[in-house]
């Protein structure tokens, strides 16, 4: 299970961004391609562990799963695969190895909150 090391990388990456911008991370948005090699449930499980004792403790991981999109040479069009067990165009049935999307493992966005009392002291506007 490599999801824990992936989760640690997410926490590290999100922590760096949050430190740069000020504020506390409440939600981490992640895009997960079906061909990323990462299992969603295992990652969610690992995430809380990875957050423990860090600035991200208590934050939530929101995962948006991306289907695999291939380029079909017969249709000359991008097609989403119904299953990653079959790299066939769902329209014409042609086999195609040409993956356009679906390998993503991307930190997309963060939701940052600011404590009321700390707000005036947080130099969120400086860079």
């Amino acid at each position: 299970m490599h999801e824990l090391s992936i989760a640690l990388s997410i926490v590290e990456g999100a922590g760096e961004e949050a430190a740069r911008r000020g504020g506390k991370v409440s939600v981490v948005h992640l895009r997960l391609g079906q061909l990323s090699g990462v299992v969603k449930d295992a990652l969610l499980f690992s995430y809380d562990l990875a957050c423990e004792g860090t600035l991200l403790e208590g934050s939530r991981l929101m995962i948006e799963e991306e289907p695999v999109v291939v380029f079909c040479p017969e249709c000359a069009a991008e097609r989403a695969l119904a299953s990653i067990q079959s790299f066939r165009c769902p329209v014409c049935g042609a086999l195609t190895p040409d993956v356009v999307r679906g390998r993503e493992l991307e930190l997309v966005a963060l939701e940052l909150t600011y404590e009321q009392h700390a707000a005036s002291a947080t130099p969120a506007t400086t860079d």
Binding site: G13, E106, L107, V108, A109, E111, Q116
Partner: peptide
Amino acid sequence: TPHPPRLPRLIEVRKNVLKRN
């Protein structure tokens, strides 16, 4: 003047998690 409570802010990051590797 005191700051009003600030709403959560959504910031775009777009960072490959395995970028270092």
